[in-house]
Design a protein around this nucleic acid. Structure first.
Length: 508
RNA sequence: GGCGCUAUCGUCUAGGGGUUAGGACGUGAGAUUCUCAAUCUUAAAACACGGGUUCGAUUCCCGUUAGCGCUACCA
């Protein structure tokens, strides 16, 4: 099983959308595997049948792929119980139940585990008493050395029992690649439950600590990279490895991601699932870059990395052991960087869905519409943090209501000034004298003429005109916007031409 | 209560027994542009606290405090 090859795994529970924190764990595993030339394994931990939902498993797989974290071994699509890709399957824990039962029975036979007949009520009372006396809450081990007569009688009476592992006297140690050597005193660790209560007619189910350990060992996992909320589970798992005589892997416990209030990052802090970031129009490479940056750093200066560079410089030892606050602004700045260098065609393809109702279905769109949309998006892309903001920015292209534009308080203030009236009058005069479409050249000429006729320039000259065409005071440069509006108006998308806009606004 | 983890600008971090404690995001100011964005320049901004060790500690050690995790027959 151990041939020295690096094998790591990402083992999510399909109980919800993939969280950025989990995604970071997955990324660390993936980067480590890439860096070491090892295997990256996806294992689905769905032993909690109450909370596991196949839909989430499917989503999880999509999200990982979207991030570019492809695995070497893993399950088939949900519902397909065939072994999956790899030689260590099945990779879904619900398909491995028989294995766990078999391994638990083995420990029981060897006397390394025992039947515990304590009820949950008894255990709770025990814990409570311990707590009141300020003692560590460790199971007393009451059932550890039950006489075989007693066991037989209990069994005969059909009493339910759980299976617990006997923890030895020796301290439980493990090597943690981000924290160094970690040690727990044996008397601070309860005999871990391996299999939940049950009896012969109603067998118990194995618990998490047991199944992960069995799976990690059987799958030849060499490095367990996971969240630090597992750190106090680790001594119990170490004890299980030792009971079987299996080699204990190396661990790396990653500190959690926090919200701005230093609480664990959760939904109330805003977007936290990978699916949501994707829907908002973040680029996967931005997210990957940011997640890799959090809690680790190459030299304190470089911050932009391709996936390849990330792999090259990845070192578990360089990951900070302190928790990190997730900074949405920083993610945005990284995303802006990647958006700027992304191909316009790719961005337009991503952005299409945000313009539902304004554009035809993508499959039905003609080539000119496609090309036009790429140009349009190109104008607005430098102005957004993520692509779903495009809609609001570019909405005015698709529709123009002169009255609404006039009515906006900030516009009204601009238009109320004398110079603005002069500019608009000049513009209206030229519109009346001109019966052809308003091309960029024509518009440019008008600007020059009005400039010399009125002596106005800069904001005083341009702002009223911008409002008359776009209805807002912000946006891409008019020189570039006008041709795109003109092209758009010829495509039958309902985009008003510059002429139509001016007619409505200055009332020709 | 017990056990464990953590502690450098607001945030992510670099650094390390003597440094002007560096970078990035964000923030302020300025330049440029018709506006916004972008870009460029620039400014403010940090070694949690208390004891040691030392000629010297932000750095090493010990405590304190604070935060977080675990303390389940959840994962």
């Amino acid at each position: 099983m151990d041939n020295g090859k690096v094998r790591v795994r990402f083992a999510p529970s399909p109980t919800g959308l993939l969280h950025v924190g989990s995604a970071r764990t997955a990324l660390c595993n993936w980067l480590f595997a890439q860096r070491q030339g090892g295997d990256f394994i996806l294992r689905i931990e769905d032993t909690d049948t109450e909370r596991s939902v196949p839909r989430y498993e499917k989503q999880l797989i999509e999200d990982l792929r979207w991030l570019g974290l492809e695995w070497d071994e893993g399950p088939n699509e949900p519902g397909n119980r065939a072994p999956g890709k790899g030689e260590y399957g099945p990779y879904r824990q619900s398909d491995r139940l028989a294995t766990y039962v078999q391994y638990a029975a083995k420990l029981l036979q060897e006397g390394k585990a025992y039947r515990c007949f304590c009820t949950i009520e008894e255990l709770e009372a025990e814990r409570k008493a311990l707590m009141e006396r300020h003692m560590p809450q460790v199971y007393s081990g009451r059932c550890r050395n039950l006489a075989s007569k007693v066991i037989k009688r209990n069994l005969g009476a059909g009493l339910p029992y759980s299976i617990r592992l006997k923890i030895g006297e020796q301290p439980l140690r493990f090597q943690d690649m981000v924290r160094g050597s970690v040690e727990f005193q044996a008397d601070a660790v309860s005999d871990p439950i391996l299999v939940r209560s049950g009896n012969d007619t109603n067998p118990g189910t194995p618990v998490y600590n047991f199944v992960v350990t069995v799976d990690d060992a059987l799958m030849g996992i060499s490095h367990v990279i996971r969240g630090d909320d597992h750190i106090s589970n680790t001594p119990k798992q170490v004890a299980i490895y030792e009971a079987f005589g299996w080699q204990v892997p190396l661990f790396a416990h990653l500190s959690p991601l926090l919200g701005a209030d230093r609480e664990r990052l959760s939904k109330r802090h805003g977007a936290t699932s990978i699916a949501t970031f994707r829907e908002m129009g973040y680029l996967p490479e931005a997210l990957v870059n940011y997640l890799a940056l959090l809690g680790s750093n190459k030299d304190g200066k470089t911050e932009i990395f391709t996936a390849q560079e990330l792999v090259q410089q990845f070192a578990l030892e360089r990951i900070t052991s302190s928790p990190a606050v997730f900074d949405f602004d920083k993610l945005d700045s990284l995303n802006r960087h990647y958006v700027k260098s992304a191909s316009p065609i790719r961005l337009a393809a991503m952005a299409w869905e945000y313009f539902g109702g304004l554009l035809p279905e993508k499959e039905d769109a003609s080539d000119p519409v496609l090309v036009w949309f790429v140009h349009l998006i190109g104008l607005f892309v430098p102005n957004v943090d993520h692509l779903d903001q495009l809609t609001a920015k570019a909405l005015f292209v698709f529709g123009f209501d002169a009255e609404v534009a006039r009515g906006r308080p900030e516009n009204a203030a601009v238009l109320a000034v004398d110079s603005a009236r002069v500019v608009l009058t000049e513009l209206a005069d030229r519109m009346r004298a001109h019966s052809l479409p308003v091309t960029p050249e024509v518009f440019k000429q008008w600007v020059e003429e009005i400039k010399s006729a009125t002596g106005l320039d800069g904001q005083e000259l341009h702002h009223p005109m911008r409002i008359a065409i776009t209805g807002t005071q912000t946006g891409p440069e008019l020189d570039q916007l006008i041709p795109v509006i003109e092209q758009g108006s010829a495509l039958g998308l309902g985009v008003p031409s510059v002429r139509q806009r001016l007619e409505r606004f200055v009332g020709v």
